[in-house]
Each structure stands twice: as structure tokens, then as C-alpha cells.
Amino acid sequence: MNLTVNGSPVSLTSDGETPLLTALRDELGLVGTRFGCGQGLCGACHVNVDGAVLPSCQTPLWQVEGRSVTTVEGLGRDGAPHPVQQAIVDHQAAQCGFCISGIVVTAAALLEQEPDADADRVAEALDRNLCRCGAQRRIVGAVLAARRPT
């Protein structure tokens, strides 16, 4: 299986039915994408595939062959976090943080497509991301702060 992960071509030995999440974590060691439910219902494993946000636990490798996958590790690089990541730290918009990888990926994709998204739109975009600690309102505030200055 050949695909691009965080800008680099990779060749995976896992078979095509292997969930992308398992391949990312187990074969590539990219553990920033979290396993939350394995059923595509919590958002903790969200990744960006050619601009679309997908639950990687429900995405078999064959479906992403030849495509470009961006994980949370690919959004922020050494010393240069993505604006959404920086805003979440600035606003302390997390508690346990387990949901945050998927939220960062989802919110970054939203702001890419809708740089002026308002609070309702951010909450709507994050509808498939669950947060159990109750940091939702802080997270929405952080995503709004991460918008490009207009």
C-alpha cells in the first residue's frame, strides 16, 4: 500500500483491509491519532485525506491508496504549531486532551475551507467530535481565535 502521510511517501506492508488508524499507530508509530471507539462515532481518530476529514478507524487502507493523509503530527511541526493547536494551548482549551487530536484536524480543515466560520459553525463542524471533560465551549473559543486576522 503506497500513500502519502504528512507530506512524505510511505509504503505499508499492512493489508488493504487494515484500518488506517491501526496502520498509522502500529506500523508508522504515529500515535498522535487516538483510538477512541473504533466505530467512527467519537472523532478522536480524525485525519485529513485530500481535504476531507475522515475517521481513520473506519477507513481501510485500500481506500487511501495513492492519496494524501495528514494527521495531527503533520499539522504542527517542531516549534511551529498549527494556529488551532497554538490557540488551544493559549486558551487552555482542554482537560485530558484525548479528544484534541481529532478536534485539531477537524477544526483546521474547517478554517481552511471557511476562514470566517462563526461559533455556531465551529460547533456544528465539531458535531462528530466528542469531548467528555466538558471543554467544548473553551475549544470553540480557541478555534475562533485561530482564525486568520481579517
Partner: peptide, 23 residues
Amino acid sequence: CSTPRLDLPDKVLGRPRYLADLR
């Protein structure tokens, strides 16, 4: 002081931090 959480940067950047991340 409202000191920022020491553990949050790792978690927000997706670094190995949780038990399931140990290899």
C-alpha cells in the same frame, strides 16, 4: 497564578503521552 498546564503541549501536538502510546 494561572500557570498553563505542563502536560497540554504534548497532548495538543499529538506527541506520545498516553498509556496506549507506549511502545
